[in-house]
Amino acid sequence: MRGFVSFLGTRLARAFVALWLVSTVVFVVMRLSGDPVPLLLPPDAPRSEIFRVRAELGLDKPMIVQYGIFLGNVARGDFGRSIHFRDSAMNVVIGYLPASLELALTAFVLAAAVAVPVGLVSAIRRNTLIDHAAMGVALVGQSAPTFFLGILLILVLSLQAGLFPTSGRGDWRHLVLPGLTLGAFAMASIARLTRSAVLEVLRADFVRTARAKGVSEALVVGKHTLRNAALPIITITGLQLGQLLAGAVVTETVFAWPGIGRLAIQSIYNRDYPIVQCTVFLSAASFVVINFLIDVLYGVLDPRLRTR
């Protein structure tokens, strides 16, 4: 137990360092990108007006002071006021968050609900046609570029078959294509890992013992195998959830989905630093938090880790 707690402690410390580095990099990159003030004012604005706005946004202070203020504010969850939306950045991003969460969770549920059974069947029916077909599709899904997958889905299921709308947010039909696009990579990864995790356990001595005892195949798979294969499956599934929350930028752009990924891209073009910082930080934070929760879950699910 002691070892596990100190393991979690190290992980937690690393998570904080990661978040600090992320915010530093974001600060440096955004400050390098130039002065946003001319974008905010009409081209004929007097110099005095430019200086006033600059002072108002704190852009006239030395860089190191700006950085210090920035870090202090980040710690309090304050990313400043959006230059474009004229509201606190956190408020704006929180307004876009539900759409992103909706999409990420849809993709996640789709991926897990399809991939775990597929991986399981593939493992049990190893080297059959079903296995080869499923793993072939998974390989394609894993290496297909997200944006092109989205375009293919729009082309076939939306424009040709007319089943789903091409873009935007609305009822459940709007969720299907972006959900599939975003979830494809996760689905493929989870399916492949489930298969190899189950295969691994099926080889174990205790499975052979169970079979020798005459335990039914359903029980061997359902109880002995799945329980032992659950750990790696939960790990990769959780890691994928982190990726889905952080990585929806491309999918949201392809489907004009009003989430924080698309907001981030638009804000980069608008040079709206506070929004960019806030979205990037929240994405990284959600990823780090989920990874930490998986580590905790590990200890809960695997007693061996706790007693070590």
Binding site: V26, S33, V276, V280, A284
Partner: peptide, 15 residues
């Protein structure tokens, strides 16, 4: 670890 925890595409686009 920090870079792995980072939605890199956003940073790439920013740079």
């Amino acid at each position: 670890d920090a870079q792995l925890a980072f939605p890199f595409i956003l940073l790439a686009i920013g740079i």
